[in-house]
Write a protein that binds this DNA or RNA. Structure first.
Length: 102
DNA sequence: CGCCTGACATGAA
DNA sequence: ATTCATGCCAGGC
């Protein structure tokens, strides 16, 4: 089967160091999925809740969380990010953390 | 088989 | 900086 993309995405996620974040588009790019930003989102949405992947380190291209502010998922992700020294200011993550290079 | 939706990205007004 | 519209891919109905 063609589970390659999924595995690729998993590998990319695991490759993100602590205290650093990236965007769906970048993940898709490094996972060899051209224009697969939504695919990444799809995959993450289908991740099991007991996953060990750092999905919380994945944000939108503009540095915002992909969830509506105030929602449970948003709060959860923000919490996880703050635990990694990634402070969120006005719904926007610190740009310093956004520069992640493979 | 066609239409709609969604953890996105980008460009233009 | 904000809002609207379009493009892409996969799934669900």
């Amino acid at each position: 089967m063609d589970n390659e993309p999924k595995e690729k995405i998993y590998s990319t996620l695991m490759a993100i160091p602590r205290g650093r974040v990236t965007s769906y588009g970048k993940v898709a790019e490094y996972a060899q999925l051209p224009h697969g930003a939504r695919l990444v989102g799809r995959i993450l949405s289908q991740l099991p809740k007991d996953t060990t992947l750092p999905w919380h380190r994945v944000l939108k291209a503009n540095g915002q969380i992909a969830f509506p502010p105030g929602s449970a998922a948003y709060t959860r992700q923000k919490k996880l990010l703050e635990l990694e020294d990634i402070i969120i200011r006005n719904g926007r993550v610190k740009l310093s953390a956004f520069r992640w290079q493979p």
